[in-house]
Amino acid sequence: MSTDDLETDLTRNTENTPRELLTRSFFFLCAALSVVTTISIVGLLVVEASKFFTITAPLMDVKGETASLVDFLTGTTWQINNQEFGVLALVSSTLMVTIGSAVIALPLGVATAIYLSEYASAQARSVLKPALEILAGVPTVVYGFFALIYITPALGVVFPGIGTFNMLSASIVVGIMIIPMVASISEDAMSAVPDELRQAGYGMGATKFDVSTGIVVPAALSGIFSSFILALSRAIGETMAVTVAAGAQAKFLNPINPASYLEGALPMTAAMVQLLNSDITGGGLAYRSLFAIGLVLFVITLIMNVISDYVARRYREVY
């Protein structure tokens, strides 16, 4: 830009020139698009899901079959052919994937974060961090394929009774997938712990182990906790890995019983893909149940995101 421009610019009010107005409104519209997206998601899910339930369908002027809201929320049988829509059957297997992946990802992720933030040399970090990013960058359908083709047969050696489709292999790959998320958010929190705290610890004669576990981790706890919730919300919403590896038969399993992880079941996300992909009678009630599951899924992940946000803000130690 030459000085001529600046001279003319200096002599007038620049905030409201056409150019400034135009660019500012463009940027504003871009930002507002995210609000539009949210409104569309919420609106669409609420409107379509309410066509599904007996109690709300008359409001939407829907004729034809509907399902009971109470049965939907409390039923444990998901059999579309028999018009049984008990979402708990799906929620239970989603819960299993979440628990299973948490068992793997939470300890490993935090350990990774401690190692990267406290122990690793700059050089090791420069190799490990991109490697972890690649872990997160592998497409989820590929993870699903890995689980089905390589991990399940390997598990079959240890657990002969394991099904072709099982929650265990799905949980393992989902767990691996979310390690980087736990690690990177936790590490950010640990790096934010001021060095003075560590120095004070060393000054008291503490070892590096004491400092890491006794000072850094407690100080970064809110960040670590919020990383847990975010990662679990990601595990709940994970679709392709469970669609390929977890199975296609909806079943209500007990998530606390380890034996049920050897069986296959149908998590919420996989059920949604299946609804669009198989010979189930389309249109009608089954089609609308898609949006009802979507709403449940959205609400669960939204609540978790909000909690994570709240924890990170509310309990953050400010130095």
């Binding site: 998601i41 919403g237 679709t239 949604m272 939204l302």
Partner: peptide, 15 residues
């Protein structure tokens, strides 16, 4: 925006 980043991809598909 931070909440949208956490919405599962399958829900975007529904959108």
């Amino acid at each position: 925006i931070s909440n949208l980043a956490g919405v599962p991809s399958v829900v975007y598909g529904l959108l």
